[in-house]
Simulated scan of single mutants.
Amino acid sequence: MDEHIIEWILLDIQKYFKLSDGDTGLLQTVFTLCNMLAAPVFGYLGDRYDRKIVLGAGIFFCSGVTSSSFISELHYWIFFLSRGLVGIGMASYSPIAPTIIADLFEEPKRTTMLSVFYLFLPVGSGLGYVLAAGMAGLSDWQWAFRITPCLGGLALVLLLLLVPHRTQGRTAAHRALSISGTIQAAAEKPGVHRTARTTWCHDVISLAKNWSFVWSSLDLTAMAFVTGAVGMCVPLFLYRAQLVQGTVSPCLQETCNSSNSSNILVIL
Rank of each mutant, 00 (worst) to 15 (best):
A144H: 03
L265Q: 06
W200R: 11
P122E: 01
D21L: 09
D103M: 11
L268F: 15
L160V: 08
P164N: 10
L238S: 01
L33E: 00
L119D: 04
A176R: 15
V226F: 07
H75K: 10
W211L: 12
I267W: 11
L127I: 14
V116N: 06
G228T: 06
L26V: 07
Y49N: 05
P122N: 04
L19N: 10
T221L: 13
Q168S: 08
Q245F: 02
R51C: 07
V230T: 03
G46Q: 02
S115G: 15
V226K: 00
L104M: 14
L55T: 01
V163L: 03
N257A: 10
K189N: 05
I205P: 00
L177C: 08
Y76H: 10
G46W: 00
K109G: 00
N35G: 10
L162W: 12
L158P: 02
F225M: 15
A173P: 01
T221G: 15
A136K: 06
Q242V: 04
V65G: 03
A173H: 12
R110W: 03
D50N: 15
N260I: 06
M90D: 07
T199G: 15
P98A: 09
I88V: 09
V157C: 10
V248T: 08
F42W: 03
L37Q: 01
V204Y: 12
G126I: 13
E188Q: 14
V123S: 05
C62E: 06
D47R: 06
E106V: 09
I88H: 01
V248K: 13
G43Q: 02
F213W: 08
L252R: 05
F17G: 07
L268G: 07
L104W: 04
L45G: 10
L104I: 12
G128C: 06
A97R: 03
L238K: 12
S217K: 01
A144W: 04
Q142E: 10
I267N: 09
D12Y: 02
L27M: 08
R240N: 12
Y76F: 12
G25Y: 01
P190D: 15
C233A: 14
A172C: 07
S261V: 02
C256T: 06
Q14W: 07
A57L: 11
D50Q: 11
M36K: 01
S125P: 02
P40L: 00
R240C: 04
G134W: 14
A38W: 07
G89K: 08
D12A: 03
S67I: 12
A172F: 14
I88G: 01
G87W: 13
L243M: 14
V123E: 07
F17K: 06
I53G: 07
A186N: 14
G89D: 01
Q245S: 13
R48N: 14
R197N: 11
S69E: 08
V30R: 00
L19H: 12
L161T: 12
Y16P: 07
Y239V: 08
I179L: 15
N35H: 13
L121R: 01
R240M: 09
W143Q: 09
Q28T: 15
